[in-house]
């Protein structure tokens, strides 16, 4: 067979490579309805082949069990803060600069300071005088040792759009909100699931419970706005208030969008 190169096959290989390595593959490497069918079949093949590794991680099972137990105690699942992994027990050598979504959800300056104790180059820039602040809103996600990482071209981000990015310390979206460029963490402030951008609604949607955040990072389908304007396509309002999405520091220079992130 003569040497052939096919750009579609090259790009699709990135999807397969992640899948076969056991990582979450990216939909960006899937470009058509046909490829989506191929990707789904590939996922089934990857799932069928790993009979010995198809058992859940015990830590995951325990964390979810705690939520079941709390439900039995009569608390509604949506009101329970996520179980917190004891940071003092984290092994020191375990990629400390990487913010897991559970860590991001601990919330509060006290917890953030706790994060900083074990993590390199990650802290909250402006200590807040408020007793129990959340990590949402304008606080910097990273201060101290860090650098500006390019994440997108301004020309590729017309108003009303968002683009995913990934850095050593966190993942997120850069958005163009009617000309205002900002960065938003992709971690849902409810239970820490990864938000998905929906271009047709211009929002960031959580696949776990359906929270929708607008391009300002605020909950868009909550009770407060529901009465005046039910949210597109949803049957009911999101039942609880959620903090705003965390905003990594961002700047635009020479048409290049950059976020401030920690050294790897």
């Amino acid at each position: 067979m003569a040497e052939e190169r096919d750009p579609r096959a090259e790009r699709f290989e990135r999807y397969l490579d992640a899948l076969i390595a056991g990582e979450r593959p990216s939909p960006e490497d899937v470009a058509s309805g046909d490829e989506a069918e191929m990707a789904r079949l590939a996922a089934e093949m990857a799932g069928a082949a790993s009979r010995d590794t198809a058992d859940p991680d015990p830590a995951f099972v325990e964390q979810l069990r705690l939520r079941m137990r709390a439900a039995d105690a009569g608390l509604a699942a949506v009101q329970i803060p996520p179980p917190v992994r004891d940071l003092a027990a984290e092994p020191a050598g375990q990629r400390p600069w990487r913010l897991s979504r559970r860590q991001l959800l601990q919330g509060g300056i006290g917890a953030a300071a706790g994060l900083a104790a074990g993590l390199i180059g990650v802290s909250v820039a402006r200590p807040s005088p408020v007793a129990a602040p959340s990590l949402g809103g304008d606080e910097d996600l990273v201060a101290g040792e860090g650098f500006w990482q390019k994440v997108a071209q301004l020309a590729d981000l017309p108003p009303g759009t968002a683009a995913r990015f990934s850095t050593a310390a966190f993942d997120g979206f850069v958005v163009n909100d009617s000309g205002d460029v900002r960065a938003l963490s992709s971690v849902c402030t409810h239970m820490g699931c990864t938000l998905q951008y929906r271009p047709e609604w211009q929002d960031l949607r959580c696949p776990c419970h359906g929270a929708s955040f607008d391009l300002a990072g605020q909950l868009a389908n909550g009770r407060r706005t529901w009465r005046d304007q039910p949210y597109r396509g949803d049957a009911r309002a999101y039942p609880i208030e959620l903090p705003d999405l965390v905003r990594p520091r961002v700047k635009v220079a020479d048409g290049v969008i950059m976020v401030w992130t920690a050294q790897a």
Binding site: A43, C193, T194
Partner: peptide, 19 residues
Amino acid sequence: YARVGNRPDAEDLTAQVFV
């Protein structure tokens, strides 16, 4: 897991079922 083929997605969806 048999249908999504990777652990991160399998955990997310399993949690979704039980929530």
